[in-house]
Design a protein around this nucleic acid. Structure first.
Lengths: 361, 361
DNA sequence: GTGAAAGCGCTAACAA
DNA sequence: TTGTTAGCGCTTTCAC
């Protein structure tokens, strides 16, 4: 220090910024050096007390931590990051479109990251993402693949940025082949299929249909085989591949309803399709759930607002957040290791569009 | 450098990390020093070329920039931040609950920030937020007040962290009294009221009701006075203060429908209330929009999925993002200045729940 | 217009 | 257990 070195070690106040301008005398944030001197220890000791690494006596650490609060010292994150080389931040890659599924992930991710004192940075796609990664601003990247099964765009992005020091997690509907520095978290869609099949059959349904979005590859087979196992196999013509919009769902349902023998229950691959199915039923004066049961998937915000409120399958976004974060840290801890995809279970949410078929009781 | 100093200045490759382990020989990211030497200039020149500050000849800058891409040099963000003292990041404060309104803001904010090369960090509330701010991790904070008018919780948060170097923007439904280092961005709710009043009256409605959430302070008066101005004043008993859920909306609408002379059109303060109103109408076999027009507010994701699709008022979240960011930078550029609240216009979105009242033509 | 040198605030060897 | 010293990679006076 340039001056004031005569201050005894017991001094308890921190030197104040030298700006004596007209502005209120705001103490500039103290540096570790100033703080250490103020409490009579070395910067190293302070550092060790904070980072919990290195050996410090418990009482010293205690003391340092207390006086930190007292004097309001907080380490400068940038300095820490510069010297440790870790950013304590992970990026969530987000295109300009606001996919509700992706958005729904944010709180869970943030929470999970927070446990590790990590931050969540929202970044754009393409060059932007690359810039953040190249500048060492993030220790990991999570990308959400198309919400449609089978689309591999997410992996492309992952491959373009993943490296030993910056692993990448892809959230998809289908498991990825393990690749170095790339982790895969998937929704347990086959599990959804099994759960729904059981629930419907248990209610007494035997004629069960399916309205799928493109490439419902992993869900439909599981759904069908469980149905068969339970003695209620699905007729081929009841398994429809529609699009993703409510209009697609409406068309599909209308077709199903026009069949000589139509299903008493229908599982729609997503809630929007289900809403369309609901609409088709209403237009044809088929009562839901009395004459037709409908179950959706994803539990989007509007599912509880349909009429009647839509039974559906919830994707636990907090669980996804946790899975993503633990896998990310595994990848960070053991770079180069190939980890198998981690799958997150879904959960049935029973509302009012499913009941026993008429005449089953 | 420890070795290889005999390399001539014309050397065009960057030294490679010294880790000769079994791992692939990944070149460690070059430092400015290495890069500068590789292209035969000083670190200073490189720095100046990048930051656009300081004087460099145009041709030198050009050259440096080109070779940067060529050799893949990207400055270390942490070092930059440490020395400049700016984090190039703003925090979006988010509680554990995932308010759809708040979530909808994220893409717009991210986009707007991106223009300035700023990042968007998602942070929790309370101590967490304070920790991020204290550690100089962010240059600004944006908090979203309760989505209910009049709630002042957002300001409290803002006050607890705002400082000259870290201004805070509060997004609320009511303007804030200007405070140092705190900016206010508001939705133009009075504007919404006026727009809806005009639209409804133009269609021919004269009996117009309102279903409000608690404290619709800024919207209702504007709505009422515009209605009066247009010669279609609202009866007191047609202005209801409900809650925020669809059930509240249903109850309110049911009541309105039970009146001896009930409104031919109803404006609901939010889409969820409107959905409830829709439900009430259906239950009482009142056809929408033939016998009753309904218009909501906020244009949530499900608004286009109701039956019929809900006419509503959209809040332009991109515009909010822009407003927030420009105000934030104004605050950053002129610390201490008191800026008036900035208001963002809303926009009518006509779908299928509004039409001329029966017998008006 | 360009370069050399001095930090920014912190952590991590290495001594004591 | 604690302190001293040397950087982490960059920007920025200050000379040239």
């Amino acid at each position: 220090m340039k001056s004031g070195d005569s201050t005894p070690k017991t001094q308890t106040s921190i030197p104040v910024g030298q700006e004596s301008s007209g502005i209120p005398n705001l103490p500039k944030a103290p540096t570790i050096k100033q703080f250490a001197q103020a409490i009579g220890v070395s910067p190293t000791t302070v550092s060790r007390s904070i980072t919990r690494r290195g050996r410090v006596s418990d009482e010293t650490r205690q003391m340092v931590l207390e006086r930190m609060k007292e004097l309001g010292y907080t380490p400068n994150l940038h300095a820490q990051r510069l010297v440790t080389g870790r950013a304590n931040t992970v990026a969530l890659c987000m295109g300009p479109t606001s996919d509700p599924f992706l958005m729904g992930l944010i709180p869970g991710l943030q929470q999970a990251l927070q446990e590790y004192d990590y931050g969540l940075l929202i970044v754009g796609t393409g060059d932007l993402l690359k810039r953040w990664v190249d500048s060492r601003a993030v220790d990991g990247v999570v990308v959400v693949g198309g919400h449609v099964d089978g689309v591999q765009a997410g992996v492309e992005v992952a491959r373009s940025v993943a490296r030993p020091s910056v692993p990448c997690i892809v959230i998809e509907n289908l498991p990825l082949n393990p690749e170095p520095h790339i982790g895969s978290v998937i929704i347990d869609l086959p599990g959804s299929g099994v759960q729904v099949a059981r629930a419907l059959v248990e209610k007494g349904h035997r004629r069960i249909g399916f309205i799928g979005s493109p490439y419902s590859q992993s869900l439909l087979p599981a759904f069908q085989s469980e149905l068969k196992r339970l003695g209620a196999p699905m007729l081929k013509k009841w398994a429809l591949m529609a699009g993703t919009t409510s209009d697609d769902g409406e068309n599909a349902m209308t077709y199903l309803l026009s069949l000589p023998t139509s299903p008493t229950a229908v599982f729609a691959r997503n809630d929007e399709l289900a809403v369309g199915a609901l609409r088709a039923a209403r237009k044809r004066r088929v009562r839901v759930p009395e004459e037709l049961s409908i179950i959706g998937h994803d539990d989007l915000a509007f599912a509880r607002l349909t009429e009647p409120p839509l039974s559906t399958v919830r994707i636990d976004s907090d669980a996804i957040g946790k899975a993503v974060v633990t896998l990310l840290f595994d990848l960070l801890d053991q770079p180069g290791t190939l980890f198998p995809a981690r799958s997150v279970a879904t959960e049935l949410v029973a509302r009012a569009t499913v009941q026993a078929p008429s005449g089953s009781d």
